[in-house]
Design a protein around this nucleic acid. Structure first.
Length: 291
DNA sequence: ACCCAGGGTGACG
DNA sequence: CGTCACCATGGG
């Protein structure tokens, strides 16, 4: 059953949404800017410069405010048109993956803005999720635009020219550390006209080669950008968590070679990147491989 | 004090 | 091609 939606009093109400856990998706480390109110029911964030409050009641998702003709924009962001029942069925059918369910059930891969993903995941390198979130929050407060939502003030993700213009001292105060030159150089390249969207229609191999030309983007960050913002559902980011998880789940706790790991990833298929997010969530929840 | 975190760069073989 | 020291920062 595909979802349905209607717009009522500036609230987008999406019904019959299966396999979607809003809180899990907002806090699993794929996006760094969603914050919940104290009771954890309402999630506040910014989607393409629109400040929104999102909540979930059973199989309904409520997004407020939403103006006419913005419906598809939010449906796309939260990936609500994709059939996650079949993706979870795929996971369940493989005993090595099925251990990730039910803990990770309801995970969806959001479709973030490419420039925000580019900068966010450059910041993510050799860093932890809590600190990444703090850095990005300070960045948005410092040079994003204020956006009012009810009694709250949210911030847009800064434009490329704003970030490109930041001084070393400003970036240091924001706390980006040694990543400052990577951030500024990448922002400058976008500001000068580079179109990240052209990467969306490329093959995975071509897309990787292209995004890797950005300073501060290596293989792992490249796959994060491709998966989380450019529609490459088969991009499979391998960080320390995924490395440990794949070793445990697929290789009997013996470290695989890159070729061996690649073979497993390709066997998962064209949604391997989405499956990766289930594995990532599972690994973090059970503290896999750590004491 | 040491180790770790959604790793990448540059130098050197 | 592969390896490896180094890189800011804050929390455990």
């Amino acid at each position: 059953m595909i979802m349905k939606y209607e717009l009522v009093n500036d609230t987008l109400i999406i019904s019959d949404v299966k396999r979607f856990d809003l809180a899990k998706c907002c806090s699993c480390g794929q996006a760094f800017r969603w914050v919940s109110d104290p009771n954890g029911m309402d999630w506040y964030g910014v989607v393409r410069s629109r400040p929104v409050k999102v909540s979930q009641e059973g199989d309904r998702v409520l997004i407020h405010p939403c103006k006419a003709f913005d419906e598809q924009l939010f449906i796309d962001y939260f990936d609500l048109e994709r059939d996650y029942e079949s993706i979870e069925a795929l996971i369940r059918s493989d005993p090595r993956l099925s251990v990730c369910l039910p803990g990770a059930s309801g995970i969806r891969v959001f479709n973030q803005e490419p420039f925000e993903a580019l900068i966010s995941f450059i910041i993510s390198a050799n860093n932890n999720i809590k600190r990444i979130s703090g850095i990005i929050d300070r960045l948005c407060r410092f040079c994003g635009d204020q956006l009012q939502l009810e009694d709250r003030i949210l911030y847009s993700f800064p434009t490329p020219d704003r970030i490109a213009a930041l001084t070393d001292e400003e970036l240091k105060n924001i706390g980006v550390g040694y990543r400052a030159p990577y951030i500024r150089a990448s922002a400058k390249r976008i500001q000068e006209g580079y179109e990240l969207e052209t990467i969306r229609s490329m093959s995975l191999t071509e897309a990787r080669k292209e995004i890797l030309t950005f300073m501060g983007v290596g293989p792992k960050v490249a796959d994060c950008i491709l998966l989380f913002s450019l529609g490459h559902t088969d991009a499979f980011p391998v960080d320390v968590w995924i490395g440990r998880a794949m070793k445990e789940l697929f290789f009997d706790s013996e470290p695989p070679t890159k070729a061996e790991l690649n073979r497993v990833v390709e066997s998962i298929g064209k949604y391997s990147g989405i499956v990766q997010q289930y594995i990532f969530h599972h690994a973090r929840m059970v503290n896999l491989g750590k004491k």
